[in-house]
Design a protein around this nucleic acid. Structure first.
Lengths: 158, 158
DNA sequence: GGGCCTGACTTGAAGCGTCAACCAACTCGG
DNA sequence: CCGAGTTGGTTGACGCTTCAAGTCAGGCCC
């Protein structure tokens, strides 16, 4: 990994692009979290988890599946689901067929919460991202994101 | 804020672009942090702080200035600088002219640490972002980032 | 069909970030 | 000058994430 001491530093335009992305990485999550927290008392991650449940058959899904969907570790998910369960938004039960598996399910309360939170969240995404860009840039953004993903996660290229 | 109940949901291509960006927001910081932590035992934020100091005259800078540069709250910076000070990488002292101001300065040890960490970090940024994109996309990325910033932070539009 | 390994979570402790309160140093009107 | 208000920074408590260890159910091999 450290064979030669020749470092390819960033050229000015490379640096500018990187700084722009880096600042995004810092600020966007905060802005999105802030809106959800203020209006619906939910974390972005909690929202994602509940959204993941809501769009699954029976509004339920096994933990590791959900962890993959929400881009989080299983441990993190376990803590979060425990908190959501305490608030009455989800329930957990072992799978009938395989006792190792836990499936989490959205309660009616949780579904209500999600339905109430969704419009505000979508509006925030629109305001900060979608409506800030023209359609051409939207395409470019998707292409750029996909490229970076391939580098980050060469495993599941599909 | 909730005048009409008509929500403009995301169209499929909008959703795709957003999901692509969202996944980036989750994974890129982790990947970058992981590399720095593993190879240099530094957080991305700590790295940014030290980099900010290193490129300032006298390798020193006042706290609030540094906080702005590193996209973090003053409180966060205060905690981080205290930890860095405990490790011997920076020192703090009150400003001679205005006693309210604290200036942080990089020590020689801190500078060594930064110099040792920089190549690996730059290599990671290159691998995951810069080299994943072609020059055209790099320009597009900068333009997209700038647009979103304007929405996030309409205040300092220059 | 008992021991052993693997897989799917869960838990507890430790570290980091945020928020709200706090303190100290300047400024400025009177 | 002197006291109110402002600015710059620090601190402590609390919540969330991570990491390492633990639990418990299935599969497998003899």
């Amino acid at each position: 990994m450290s064979g030669d001491d020749e470092v390819r530093w960033l050229a000015p335009d490379e640096l500018a692009a990187w700084m722009s992305l880096a600042a995004l990485l810092f600020k966007l999550p905060g802005a999105l979290d802030f809106q959800l927290q203020r209006d619906s008392n939910l974390t972005h991650f909690e929202y994602l988890v509940m959204a993941g449940l809501s769009e699954s058959p029976d509004r339920s899904r096994r933990m590791s599946d959900l962890a993959g969907f929400s881009n989080g570790s299983l441990s993190r998910l376990s803590h979060v689901v425990k908190r959501l369960e305490k608030r009455g938004f989800v329930v957990r039960r072992p799978d009938a067929a395989d006792g190792r598996i836990t499936v989490a399910a959205l309660t009616d309360d949780g579904y209500q919460q999600l339905v109430a939170a969704a419009p505000g969240h979508v509006a925030a995404v629109r305001e900060f991202v979608i409506d800030a860009l023209d359609p051409e840039q939207l395409d470019q953004l998707k292409a750029i994101g996909d490229r970076i993903h391939q580098k980050l996660d060469p495993g599941r290229s599909c």
